[in-house]
Amino acid sequence: MANPIKKIKRIEYSEEEIQEQNVAEVMQAISENKDSVIKGIDLLSTVNESGTLDIISALIKKRKVALENLVTELNKERYAGSIENLSELFMLLGSINTEQIEELLTKMNQGIEDAQFVSETETTSYMDLFRAIKDPEINKSITMLLEFLRVMGRD
């Protein structure tokens, strides 16, 4: 004879048993992922030593507030220009001819480097200037500068 019943007596696990079971699960996971865990600890320790861990941890805990502050702030009118510029600037970058710029910058660097060797007492007279125009390297630089100024001034 079995009458209908509904009561269930759950297995009551003691704190220790639950802890034991959890620890066993964690140990197994660690054992299966030894290398990653060690590297992870190393990374964590580096982040901690630099003090970054505290900052990140606090930021994550307060993420809702932080995000709200950030989004509210960025939505203000005064940022509108900057945010829009961000993507404009990004577009602009794409149109720069890096090869030419690189050539130009290399030459500038060389010029700056050589200029260091000019003695502090050395001076240049008008005649020296006229003579220098005849120097093909100097003449090329001046021509380039004038062309640059001309284009800059174009409407």
């Binding site: 709200e68 989004v71 960025l74 939505n75 945010i83 961000l86 993507s87 577009m91």
Partner: peptide, 16 residues
């Protein structure tokens, strides 16, 4: 409200 703000921001930052 927050979602709205984020949508606005997304649209500004991702204007294209």
């Amino acid at each position: 409200g927050m979602l709205r703000s984020m949508i606005e921001l997304t649209k500004k930052a991702e204007s294209d």
